[in-house]
Design a protein around this nucleic acid. Structure first.
Lengths: 210, 210
DNA sequence: CAATTCATGTATTGATCACTACGGTGACTG
DNA sequence: CAGTCACCGTAGTGATCAATACATGAATTG
């Protein structure tokens, strides 16, 4: 009823504990999957009690969604942007090669959100976890920005003739990256540069044909 | 000690119940992952009690390993063999296209072993589930037979010059298939024939280069 | 110095987990 | 027809699950 001052949040601790929990949960989910992530494991690895976990996160589902969000934000901030400098005069293949080879090198570091997200995509449970929907939405955004990047290389004729092309190419990039990440789970000997060659070749072929 | 007659197994029922359990477990594991597969869910979906589950399978770990084995055996028996008829005079690309386009068409049917196997590969738990090891071993076998198929197209000069090539190509085929299967979980609109074109192109490029 | 808020500590809830003990029953064997 | 085996039904075991209740103390406010 009366005006309650929100009371300035405690300076540091809050975020520190929150992130401790997120990090612990990320590791556990990455190792054991969605159902394999238990609050008890999270409390043990984070050193914080269950009451703190539920203080910061509504329930387990929300916790894992926040794990994916946090891990993604961490990762994306270290990534090359899919934005083309207008003065950049290099041909598409060269620009693609540059951006991909940087991007691909971060995959062996295996960001948790990617691993967890892929697990969630493979599952098809009756009730969708919040994290799964968030991951799919994020994926769509990334696809969109990659598509925009491709479009910037097309002349107006090509854009009119094949309006779907940029999105198709973006999807190719994403699916190929999935495949590479996946291959890395089995055998991390594969050479990222070979991979970049392959993707560039596919893209060139897709543009040339059709 | 004394000679015990093994007593002829009951004719039909045994295998019927066993398969009922395997099928139910396959669906559940495919929906909910390894930890999400509970004996209680299996009993509900199969209609058989927990005591029967444990009659046929040592424990949950063994059950899931048998699920992967059974699902794989079902799938492989309907697959085109990676064996080349010696009278087959078609060029590599054509043969590859033929075998792949048949193989790829079976993926949307989403064999459970593939989905479950991919989930298991993504996880990196402390103790390896039996099913994960079995899936990896099976994968290696398949890679080997695909590599042998490629080798049958190489002349002795090429074999000596690039001994790794056949295995590399086989791995490309497998990883690409992973990527396609994965893409299918998100959006099943992708055209299998486009995919075959891409794989054939990658393989041709890999042979030509290097 | 109270009063309030935030975060943690401790203890516990009812549900569900993997797994088992054990009796019953039908089908087959000698 | 008595005995054996294969499988099922019922009813549990203790452990662990997600989630909560509630008391405590430290920091921040008036």
């Amino acid at each position: 009823m009366s005006a309650v001052k929100p009371a300035a949040p405690r300076p540091a601790d809050r975020e520190v504990s929150r992130v401790r929990i997120l990090r612990a949960a990320a590791e556990i989910a990455s190792e054991n999957g969605y159902e394999g992530t238990t609050i008890s494991k999270v409390t043990k690895r984070s050193g914080l009690p269950a009451s703190s976990v539920y203080w910061f996160f509504r329930d387990k589902d929300h916790l894992i969604a926040e794990v994916v969000r946090h891990s993604f934000e961490q990762w994306i901030s270290s990534q090359p942007r899919w934005e083309r400098d207008p003065r950049d005069e290099r041909p598409l293949a060269e620009g693609l090669r540059a951006i991909l080879s940087r991007s691909v090198r971060s995959l062996p570091g295996a960001p948790d959100f990617l691993r967890i997200g892929q697990m969630l995509l493979l599952e098809s449970r009756e009730v969708e976890p919040e994290a799964r929907q968030y991951f799919l939405a994020t994926r769509d955004e990334v696809t969109g920005s990659i598509a925009a990047w491709f479009t910037s290389y097309f002349d107006t004729g090509l854009r009119a003739r094949r309006p779907e092309l940029a999105m198709d190419l973006a999807r190719i990039v994403l699916v190929s990256t999935d495949g590479l990440f996946f291959a890395h789970q089995i055998d991390d000997a594969s050479d990222p540069d070979d991979f970049v060659d392959v993707v560039v070749a596919i893209v060139e072929q897709a543009i040339a044909s059709g």
